[in-house]
Design a protein around this nucleic acid. Structure first.
Lengths: 220, 220
DNA sequence: TGATGAATTCAACAAATGTTGAAAATTATC
DNA sequence: GATAATTTTCAACATTTGTTGAATTCATCA
């Protein structure tokens, strides 16, 4: 047995199974027994390791949030450094998106599931709010700082709204619903991650420009 | 008793309560007893009127879909008529969005709930697909026709992707998560429907132009 | 009024759910 | 190798869940 890799510890197997199932069916659509079965462990083990169901969900959600935040922040800092503190809109938006793309491209199934889960939580009204706030809003605020600095004359309200549209476009793509594939009769594949971001970035940047840079009168 | 309005029939009360609760918590987050209590009826009545739970959800979802589709199609037909068959991008996007805005502005709580529900279903991976497809894709295909006609030289794939980003921006806004309000410290209010669409339309149009009209080289 | 059919309630079912405590097995520590 | 601590299993609990059939009320109309 030359390259035997020991099986992941059970606590990790639980998190991975939970990650996938929560991403597919949401919090209420998943049972602890379903997770336990998928992970190949006893139900009681979930409670032993992670406490009640909601706590398990939080652990799943937080597990990769910090990693993603750090990657995004680094990308932004790099963009700022390489531009003498004045990154372009493209650079800012790219710093927000490209790390996600990188994680998706690693082929790690876990990241795909996790990102779909984020998409799910972000558009869930009651549930997501608190968790999205705690785990992502500090970083988002930092990006909006950068946007404000890039467009000092823009109405802040417009920057926030543009960010909301941006966030929506990203969220739906992360959710991996498969709908665009069906709609386009297979022409667009959500798995084609490179194309997605190559197109999303200019789409979003153009929107920001229109709303926040060009003259107000042009909008109406 | 001068203007006494009789209470809505119970079957309608059930649909309204279900609409609100499903919009807030999703399919699995809602119990039939919760709906029954909110509607002030017996649990067994849900089964009598609508059959099993999934069927009830479908009835709720389909109830307003046709109305919305008709309004949107009329708006598109009008735009085409008033422009000699060559509606502008703004007109097409507006025809897609303004009817939604109109329904939101009627003040009918039911429409707000329903639209939030659509936002929820649209970004749910397993659940939504079939229902979104059946109830909305025919109309969406019609809009994409119009877009293709407006931009005959555009790569169809890009039109579909731009639509996906468009749909995401709309979906997140419909979902009414309250997150943008918190993020902007109250500067943006999701209830301010007029502002939302006045900004979403130019944002989306600019994105479409960038991806589908301007030269390919500009994108990268 | 009385009879027919629809609407509504009542009571209960079997199955599934989150959670827990105690026992057993495994691992670590000395 | 004995002891302690950690991990895992077993069995079960009290609720809650979707669903159903029989009984009751209500409305319609001859």
């Amino acid at each position: 047995m030359p390259d035997y890799t020991p099986p992941a510890p059970k606590s990790e197997r639980i998190l991975n199974a939970a990650e996938e199932l929560f991403a597919l069916h949401g919090f209420d659509g998943v049972t602890l027994r379903g997770i336990a079965t998928a992970a190949g462990v006893d139900v009681a083990l979930l409670n032993y390791h992670f406490g009640v169901k909601k706590k398990l969900f939080e652990v799943v959600f937080m597990r990769r949030a910090e990693i993603l935040n750090e990657a995004r922040l680094n990308a932004l800092l790099e963009a700022e450094a390489s531009s003498g503190g004045r990154p372009s809109l493209e650079q800012i938006v790219s710093a927000f998106l490209r790390p996600i793309q990188r994680f998706q491209l690693t082929g790690d199934e876990g990241w795909r599931n996790y990102l779909a889960l984020v998409g799910w939580v972000n558009s869930s009204s009651v549930w997501g709010e608190e968790m999205m706030h705690k785990s992502f809003d500090p970083l988002v605020a930092r990006f909006i700082e950068a946007l404000k600095k890039n467009m000092p004359d823009a109405d802040p309200q417009r920057i926030y709204w543009a960010y909301q549209f941006f966030s929506g476009a990203l969220t739906l793509t992360l959710a991996q619903t498969g709908r665009i594939g069906r709609l386009s009769d297979g022409l667009c594949r959500e798995s084609d991650v490179e194309t997605v971001y190559d197109l999303m970035i200019p789409f979003v940047v153009a929107g920001f420009r229109k709303l926040c840079v060009e003259s107000v009168e042009d909008v109406f």
